[in-house]
Design a protein around this nucleic acid. Structure first.
Lengths: 145, 145
DNA sequence: TTCCTTGTTGCAAAAATTCGCAGTAAATCA
DNA sequence: TGATTTACTGCGAATTTTTGCAACAAGGAA
């Protein structure tokens, strides 16, 4: 995992946040969960590492890590919001609004779009783990709206 | 508004849903609100039209309208989820993750991307009212992560 | 119409998420 | 180091969102 490559305390400080054991534990918890971590996953893992950490603290810590860009939050279909390490296993999801099927596409599939938005609007899209809604090939044929 | 152009009861039925006054009132409420409608907006308007409609019914009705594709839900920065009529005032949002500023871009700006995904994955993205996270030009220069 | 079947509603209760605040502990400076 | 400042935590409570269920009503058949 990319957990080893950064100076997490420094990242927090550079954004004006303080470095606290609770925040580091929450980050550790997400790192130890492979794939997408739900809040329940994270909570369970955090409790394991330190049972005194409150649920509200977990919510706040996740917000902080998302704010500094180290975690990304996304909403894939069913199980609510999920979190993962930013930049890890770069990919996106196509979620069918009719049948709910989730297709994973490569992280570079949207590079051209990102480049164009950057050229036209001077805006750097964070494409890390984007979720796009739409219709899969099968549901397009059924003709439902 | 595009409210007049469709046979809403038929849309519901074709998806296996029943047509109920509550659902129509919720749709009316969203239509009467210009721009993005928050849940509070919608609730207030629905209560005005029929005070006996329960909040949970509003949540469920919004889900139904999103499921049939008549409403779209999105999360722009601050005020939680917002709803709007699908296809109306086609545009997207670029939300800066550092400073929160929201830039609105034209609905056709992403056409090339949509076309490519369709070609490569046979997936028809619903680009109606997409929200992309990233960094605005000013925050790119500050160099914060 | 009237009678069924079964999806929907309103209500109340549960679950999830956010908020306020006093105590605690990072970070800075002497 | 030790003192000071102020952000952060844990806790309780408020708020928001979801869920279970009995009564109700929409849609189809007779």
């Amino acid at each position: 995992m990319s957990h080893e490559n950064h100076d997490y305390p420094q990242i927090l400080r550079s954004h004006g946040y303080r470095v606290t054991p609770q925040r580091l534990i929450v980050l550790d918890a997400v790192c130890e969960i492979t794939g997408h971590a739900t809040l329940a996953d994270i909570h369970a893992k955090v409790i394991e590492l330190d049972p005194r950490i409150d649920l509200s603290t977990i919510y706040r810590a996740l917000d902080v890590w998302c704010a500094v860009g180290l975690l990304v939050e996304s909403e894939i279909g069913d199980e609510g919001k999920v979190y993962k390490i930013s930049g890890e296993s770069n990919h996106h999801h196509l979620v069918c609004q009719s049948c709910g099927v989730v297709t994973t596409i490569s992280g570079t599939a949207l590079d051209a779009m990102v480049a164009e938005i950057h050229t036209r609007y001077d805006f750097q899209i964070n494409v890390d783990h984007l979720t796009l809604q739409g219709k899969c090939s099968r549901c397009q044929m059924t003709g439902l709206t």
